[in-house]
Amino acid sequence: MSFFGMGARVPATGYDENKINGIKGEMLMIQQMKDKASLVCLEKCVPNYYSDGDLNKGESNCVDRCIGKFFQTIKVIGTEMQKQQQGGM
């Protein structure tokens, strides 16, 4: 499968450019999701004042749940986007 109409291997570089770009895109997406999760869960779980440098029990539990819900949200949105695409414009 090719995005740019040149799916054949590139012997000069010794690797399949499209394959590498595909994997890179996926890695980038995961990275950006992590950055986003970090921002949103920080807002929801860690208050803006600092009596000490410890992440307390409640905050830690909040992070765990926040990540759980973050991924569930991704799944729900993914399903909705698929429905939208399959249903046509």
Binding site: M33, K34, A37, S38, C41, L42, C45, V46, Y50, S51, D52, G53, D54, L55, E59, S60, V63, D64, I67, G68
Partner: peptide, 17 residues
Amino acid sequence: SCSEKFMKYQQRLEQRF
């Protein structure tokens, strides 16, 4: 305190993520 907490937060977040 803020940076110490942030780093602990980030560590836990990445683990769970």
